[in-house]
Amino acid sequence: MRRASPRVALRRGLWVFIALVVLAVVEYLLTLVMKSGNLPWMVIMNIIDAGLIAYFFMHIAQLWRREE
């Protein structure tokens, strides 16, 4: 991603954080509701988690995009 201004970047970080917390809470609540077979949902949500962190927090796109 192109280098955003600090304010935009910090706000984007906050949104990612909120999304991650929501996912964690959803995982937890799902376990309370579903008494069995929640593994596929966990895996899906974990992959979304990992994707969010890798893309927004770890800037994985730096690997193949030209440097800023």
Binding site: L20, A24, E27, Y28, L30, T31, M34, K35, S36, G37, N38, L39, M42, M45, N46, D49, A50, I53, A54, F57, M58
Partner: peptide, 22 residues
């Protein structure tokens, strides 16, 4: 910081593996 995020990703997978799957 990248390493730290990775540790977080690892936990994101470990958390349901230990606490939630059924």
């Amino acid at each position: 910081v990248k390493y730290w995020h990775f540790v977080d990703v690892a936990w994101v997978f470990i958390y349901p593996t230990l606490y939630l799957v059924n």
